[in-house]
Deep mutational scan, measured.
Amino acid sequence: SDIKVHVGDITVELHNVSEEFARLVEEALRLGLNEEQAKEWAHKALH
């Protein structure tokens, strides 16, 4: 599904992702990663 993740003043739109993936992206953003890094990190975490 499509999910918007908000962290501080950052909003990341995720398309066709699981809630778990979105949660991992949100966690990575909170750790200070940028959007691209957060998506990559979440992807690796799920595989």
Rank of each mutant, 00 (worst) to 15 (best):
V5P: 05
A42H: 00
E40F: 06
V17H: 09
E19A: 13
D9Y: 02
L24D: 00
S18V: 06
A28K: 01
D9L: 11
V7R: 03
G32Y: 01
L31C: 11
L46T: 07
H43Y: 14
H43W: 13
V12C: 03
V7W: 15
E26K: 11
R30F: 08
E27Q: 15
I3R: 11
A28N: 02
H6T: 15
N16W: 08
N34H: 03
E27K: 13
H47M: 12
I3S: 07
S1M: 15
L46K: 04
A38D: 00
L46R: 03
K4S: 13
F21N: 00
E26H: 08
E19F: 10
H15N: 11
V17T: 10
A38V: 01
H47S: 14
E13W: 01
H43E: 15
N16F: 04
E35C: 04
E19T: 12
L46P: 02
T11D: 09
S1L: 15
N34P: 08
V12N: 05
L29F: 03
V5Y: 01
R30L: 13
H47N: 12
W41Y: 15
E36I: 10
N16V: 05
G32C: 02
H15K: 13
V25N: 00
R23Y: 07
E13T: 13
H6D: 08
E35I: 15
Q37V: 02
A42L: 02
H15V: 12
W41E: 11
W41V: 13
G8H: 08
R30T: 09
G32Q: 01
A22L: 06
V17I: 08
E20H: 12
A38I: 01
A45I: 15
G8V: 04
V17N: 05
D2L: 15
A42V: 02
L33V: 02
H15S: 10
T11E: 11
N34R: 03
H47I: 12
H47F: 03
A22Y: 07
N34F: 03
L46I: 13
H47C: 14
V12K: 04
I3W: 04
E35G: 10
E40H: 11
E36D: 15
V5E: 06
L31M: 15
I3D: 06
H43V: 11
E19C: 09
F21T: 01
K4T: 15
A28M: 04
A45F: 14
N16A: 07
K39C: 04
R23A: 11
A42Q: 00
D9Q: 13
I10S: 08
T11M: 11
A38M: 01
I10P: 05
S18K: 06
R23T: 07
H6C: 08
Q37T: 04
I3P: 06
N34D: 14
L29N: 01
E19P: 13
L33E: 01
A22W: 09
D2Y: 09
N16D: 11
L29D: 00
Q37D: 14
K39T: 04
L46H: 04
T11S: 11
D9R: 05
N34A: 06
S18G: 09
D2E: 12
V5K: 06
L24W: 07
V12Q: 04
K44A: 15
V17S: 09
H43N: 10
E36W: 08
H6Y: 01
E13S: 13
A28L: 04
V12M: 06
V7D: 07
V5F: 03
T11P: 03
V17F: 05
A28D: 00
R30S: 10
G32W: 00
T11W: 09
I3L: 09
L24R: 04
S18T: 15
H43A: 12
N16M: 05
I3T: 09
I10C: 05
A28H: 02
A28Y: 09
N34C: 02
V7I: 10
V5C: 04
A38N: 00
L29S: 02
A28T: 00
K39S: 03
V5W: 01
A38S: 06
V7E: 06
L29M: 10
G32I: 00
F21R: 00
I3C: 05
N34W: 02
E27P: 00
E40A: 11
I3K: 09
G8T: 06
H15Q: 10
E35H: 06
G32V: 00
Q37S: 07
L24I: 03
G8D: 09
L29W: 01
L24H: 04
H15T: 11
E36P: 05
A45H: 15
H15E: 08
S18A: 08
V5Q: 06
E36S: 11
E27W: 10
G8N: 09
L14Q: 04
L33P: 00
E13H: 11
S18I: 05
K39H: 05
R23F: 08
E35A: 13
V17Q: 06
V25T: 02
F21S: 00
L46G: 03
D9W: 02
H47Q: 13
L14D: 07
L14K: 05
H43I: 10
Q37M: 10
I10M: 12
A45E: 14
T11N: 04
N34I: 02
K4Y: 03
I10G: 05
L29C: 02
E26G: 13
N16Q: 11
L31A: 14
D9P: 09
K39Y: 12
V7G: 09
K39A: 04
H15R: 07
V17G: 04
H47A: 13
L31R: 14
K44S: 14
I10N: 07
D2F: 11
H47G: 12
W41L: 12
V5R: 04
A45T: 12
H43K: 14
Q37I: 02
S1C: 04
H6E: 14
D9G: 15
V25Q: 01
W41N: 11
V25R: 01
D9V: 10
V12I: 14
Q37E: 14
W41R: 15
E20T: 09
V5S: 06
V17L: 05
V12H: 08
A28S: 02
A38G: 01
D2I: 15
V25C: 02
V12F: 01
F21G: 00
Q37L: 09
E36F: 10
V7K: 03
S1A: 14
K4V: 15
K4R: 14
E40V: 08
L33H: 06
A45Q: 15
E40P: 00
G8K: 06
E26T: 10
L14N: 05
I3M: 10
R23H: 09
E35S: 10
H6K: 12
E19R: 08
K39I: 15
R30V: 07
E19D: 13
D9C: 08
K4Q: 13
H47D: 09
E27T: 13
H6M: 10
V17D: 07
E26Q: 10
L46Y: 09
V7T: 07
V5A: 05
A45N: 13
V5T: 05
V25D: 00
